[in-house]
């Protein structure tokens, strides 16, 4: 039962990783570079939620506000930086994204300071299901993540702009000669990727403490999940994030809090040695 409890806790942690990984994998699948600013966009989401929460007392309102802000931040970063670097090397775009992340982190530090801040959530009694204790807050967060993920998949598979995103990811030249306007598609992609990262940021902020470095710390597990799931595969990112979250939590009794991240990386390494394209990946683009 103890391990089942850890697994449940790990699922919530895994959803945060999944959201971050999906944001990374969406951008990689279409713009073809690892966006190192993703973690800092999450931080912007966490601080945005933190601003609204005391005024409304609503996690949903905080989440919606954070998603709007981070979608706007991601779109602005595209318009001001990444669009201007279109056609440059992956390394150039990666370095630019590190720079964008640094700027966002600095702004957060200037505005909010570097002291850890928390969402002052009301105390609640956990639900008892079998022998498992499930925190109502975790359920709310899981619901927020599930809605966000469902929304992302719905956009990708059920809307014209989502299909166009997948087409551009699949075959950029063919997309051009099919009359697909890449400017519109890229703008929509950055809005979606930013919104997903923002939702992840609010979840991370609620579960831990909010400070300007929180997103940067999240970047490695998020990259690991994106690669583990198969870079460019949103479904892979979701699955890998959940697996990494559960493995990290369940390994805590054996390796302690400090090394639990290392264990999940070791598992990722073994899987990638056996299947270099990741769990669901073909290294072709967003599918």
């Amino acid at each position: 039962m103890y391990f089942a409890q850890l697994a449940v806790n790990g699922l919530v942690q895994g959803l945060v990783i999944s959201l971050a990984a999906m944001s990374i994998t969406l951008v990689f699948g279409i713009v073809r570079f690892p966006n190192a600013a993703t973690g800092d966009v999450m931080t912007v989401g966490a601080f945005s939620g933190l601003v609204v929460y005391p005024m409304t007392g609503s996690l949903l309102a905080s989440g919606i506000f954070a998603v709007i802000v981070t979608a706007a931040v991601a779109l602005i970063s595209h318009l001001l930086v990444f669009r201007r670097l279109a056609g440059r090397s992956v390394v150039a775009l990666l370095v630019a994204s590190i720079g964008v992340g640094f700027v966002l982190r600095s702004i957060m530090g200037l505005v909010f300071g570097h002291q850890p801040m928390v969402f002052s959530m009301p105390l609640s009694r956990p639900y008892r299901i079998g022998g498992l204790a499930i925190n109502p807050l975790d359920l709310q967060l899981a619901l927020l993540a599930a809605v966000m993920l469902a929304l992302a998949f719905a956009v990708l598979h059920l809307t014209p702009i989502g299909r166009q995103m997948r087409a551009v990811a699949d075959n950029p030249s063919l997309a051009r000669v099919s009359g697909i306007r890449s400017g519109r598609v890229l703008a929509a992609l950055w809005v979606l990727a930013g919104a997903i990262a923002g939702a992840g940021g609010v979840m991370l902020g609620v579960k831990t403490v909010v400070n300007p470095e929180m997103g940067w710390d999240m970047l490695m597990p998020a990259f690991a999940a994106a690669i583990f799931g198969g870079i460019g595969s949103p479904a892979g990112a979701l699955l890998a994030g959940l697996i990494l979250g559960v493995v990290q939590e369940m390994s805590t009794p054996f390796v302690g809090f400090t090394y639990k991240i290392a264990l999940s990386f070791a598992i990722m390494l073994v899987v990638l040695l056996r299947r270099p394209t990741g769990l669901l990946g073909r290294i072709e683009g967003v599918r």
């Binding site: 014209p160 299909r163 166009q164 997948r166 087409a167 990811a169 699949d170 075959n171 030249s173 063919l174 997309a175 051009r176 000669v177 099919s178 009359g179 697909i180 306007r181 073909r282 072709e284 683009g285 599918r287």
Partner: peptide, 29 residues
């Protein structure tokens, strides 16, 4: 393409990861 051209490349001439229906739906117009 918007002026009325259609192009079938020699290779990679379909969106391999999209369904047949989606291949037709994504085309402008």
């Amino acid at each position: 393409m918007g002026l009325g051209m259609g192009y079938v490349p020699q290779v990679a001439n379909v969106f391999a990861n999209l369904s047949i229906l989606e291949n037709l739906q994504v085309v402008a117009g």
